[in-house]
Design a protein around this nucleic acid. Structure first.
Lengths: 173, 173
DNA sequence: TGATAATTGTTATTGACCATATCAAATATC
DNA sequence: GATATTTGATATGGTCAATAACAATTATCA
């Protein structure tokens, strides 16, 4: 499949291969035919995922939260007192890569590592007050600016059906 | 959101945070609650995308084709005679990053760069005979082993609805 | 025509992620 | 109490996306 990031800049829109079209008198480079590509699950899935992440970053620009960071805050809020291994594993993040992520969140005073009294090897994770406040604002932004857009685009029923199908793929494919 | 690759090894299955559960007598670490995460579009979209790519790679193991490489072959077959900039741009690949990809495909004799006679700056792309043959086999593998699995999982109607919704997101979000 | 700008493929380089191996400290096992 | 396991952490390598810059070629246009 393919599809690059381009993130919030939304530069180099794919599918817009034709570049300098200024006038109908100009020689049109003719767009390429996608053909079977537009029916390939992986291709369309990847493209959609990039667009969604791109939009997510735009919505969260004021809070400076990436999708991954948002997921960590959500999970820690829902499961306070769990250690790094548990949280990372649940999110599919490898422990080594989770360290820098937490360093970031902790340096911004959004969450805290607390040495466990039961098992002094592990760090218990909790949200700080600031972390809870930021997450609350993030949820509102996501709901009003991000998820709401899906409803506008697909409608409530289709939106729910889409989430359900994607979950099924994620869990059973 | 988050979710790592783990590709074909399918190691470290996310959502399986509980590790060494051997017996019901063992102290169950209790799985974490996903909470609102399971309703987040980006989260479930990313997870699904990783699973689909993972499965794609398994299906294509005999041909050693990545999703990106497959998309290039498909597009070049459908649009022979286009140059690198056009093909790369259509797929959302930046020109610099497309060079190594083509080096790979060309070294395997799957496609060829031909200096254009009209514009001697550009390289026209075409599939070699071997490239066409490999792509034909790849299509069959994708259809029978990959896309077919979606039908088993969602049903024909839902599969089509899913593709359509994802395309809508990719194009209009 | 000829000087300047733009385009194409390419290289080099950087940063973001993903993944593995390894380590010290702490705990579990037997 | 000796050995193995677990936890957080570091170091490192790989892949991929993104930007800057360059030579060759072509387009623009005064």
């Amino acid at each position: 499949m393919t599809v690059s990031k381009a993130a919030e800049k939304s530069s180099e829109k794919p599918g817009d291969a034709a570049k300098g079209r200024k006038d109908a008198t100009e020689a049109q480079p003719e767009a390429l035919q996608l053909g079977e590509l537009s029916e390939q699950l992986g291709y369309v899935l990847k493209r959609a995922q990039l667009k969604v992440f791109e939009n997510f970053l735009r919505c969260m620009a004021s809070l400076q939260l990436t999708p991954a960071q948002f997921s960590v805050l959500l999970l820690v809020e829902k499961n306070p007192g769990r250690n790094q291994t548990e949280v990372a594993s649940t999110l599919g993040i490898l422990r080594p890569n989770f360290v820098a992520m937490l360093d970031n969140l902790e340096s911004r005073d959004l969450c805290a590592r607390i040495r466990s009294t039961n098992d002094r090897r592990s760090h218990i994770l909790v949200l700080t007050d600031k972390g809870k406040a930021v997450l609350a604002r993030a949820k509102k932004l996501v709901a009003t600016k991000h998820e709401a857009r899906l409803n506008d685009l697909l409608g409530q029923a289709n939106r729910e059906a889409l989430i359900e199908m994607l979950s099924k793929i994620a869990n059973e494919f």
